[in-house]
């Protein structure tokens, strides 16, 4: 087996793990980083995006549009949840954990009761390609590209747009932003909807490759929380570098000793990072800069 085959195989596995970590975590990271709310219903927003995407595709929508629809519906549900529940608990961060956890239980069981225990899949599009002795799914490359696109999109949104400036102002000094005429409630509401929409996008992107069941969100949760914990509160200085490091650890350990060791490596990395950098990678980088 020549060097190119081995190198591409390693790169592909890294990209695959990276995409899963970034896409799982970005919605959670936006809500936690910008608002300090730990959203335990994150997995259920992912499930919502996946279910809407599959229903849309079954109703005849082209897959990219169906995924977009999934993201939009999840964002709308997110806005609603913010309005009805989370908004009333901004002063009580611990209570938001309980409230969003309750929401996740309701969503999982509600889906089971209303839509049944499983939903038929739609199949992975785009086929496969061959390099060396291995064949790969083209769609997994799309997922990797989408992870990069999401990160770039968030960077543009928060740094180059009016909403981004207002959001950052609100996060830094809320009462000062309010005094300057920023509608902080609307900023929080839109940020929460954005986070939920990103979760829905993740669900839509992964829907063709996975089993559709009411509990599917939980398979993203560990990776999402691990990435956010390692990364800290900032999406760009935290989530992205954390995903790079964790993806290297996970893909290396998995190819060396199998999935079990991939998971052990992931969790060990978290323990080490929390011990050495209690505020995550972004906390470390920001302190250095300041």
């Amino acid at each position: 087996m020549d060097a190119i085959t081995v190198a591409f195989a390693a790169l592909y596995q890294f990209g695959d793990a990276f995409a899963f970590l970034v896409l799982s975590a970005c919605g959670l990271a936006v809500i936690f980083g910008m608002m300090g709310v730990i959203n335990l219903a994150h997995g259920e927003f992912i499930m919502c995006g996946a279910y809407v995407t599959v229903s849309g595709a079954n109703a005849g929508l082209p897959l990219p549009l169906a995924i977009l629809l999934g993201a939009l519906v999840a964002a709308a549900v997110g806005a609603l949840v913010e309005r009805l529940v989370v908004r009333h608990l901004y002063e009580r961060p611990l209570d938001t954990i309980v409230a969003t956890w309750g929401l996740s239980l309701i969503a999982t069981q509600g889906t089971l009761i209303v839509l049944g225990s499983t939903m038929a899949g739609i199949g992975t599009p785009l086929g496969s390609f061959q390099i060396g002795g291995y064949s790969y799914s083209v769609y997994r490359l799309v997922l990797f590209v989408m992870a990069i696109v999401v990160l770039a999109g968030l960077y543009v949104l928060f740094n180059w747009t009016r909403f981004g400036v207002m959001a950052r102002a609100t996060i830094q000094v809320p009462h000062m932003a309010a005094a300057l005429g920023v509608d902080t409630r609307s900023v929080y509401s839109r940020t929460f909807a954005l986070g939920a929409g990103l979760a829905g996008l993740t669900g839509g992107l992964y829907a063709p490759t996975m089993t559709l069941v009411p509990t599917m969100g939980t398979t993203f949760i560990m990776e999402a929380f691990v990435t956010v914990v390692v990364g800290g509160a900032d999406v760009f200085l935290g989530t992205a570098p954390a995903a790079v490091i964790l993806a290297i650890v996970k893909s290396a350990m998995t190819s060396w000793q199998g999935q079990l060791f991939g998971q052990i490596g992931l969790l060990l990395a978290v323990i080490v990072v929390i011990r050495v950098l209690p505020k995550g990678i972004s906390g470390f980088l920001l302190r250095e800069r300041a």
Binding site: Y12, D16, A17, T211, T219, M222, S255, Q259, Q263
Partner: peptide, 20 residues
């Protein structure tokens, strides 16, 4: 032979190991 922890849903690396 590979043993997969319950709850794992991503199999790219396992698929590659099988091809190997």
């Amino acid at each position: 032979e590979e043993f997969i922890p319950l709850g794992v849903s991503q199999f790219s690396q396992s698929i590659q190991n099988i091809q190997k």
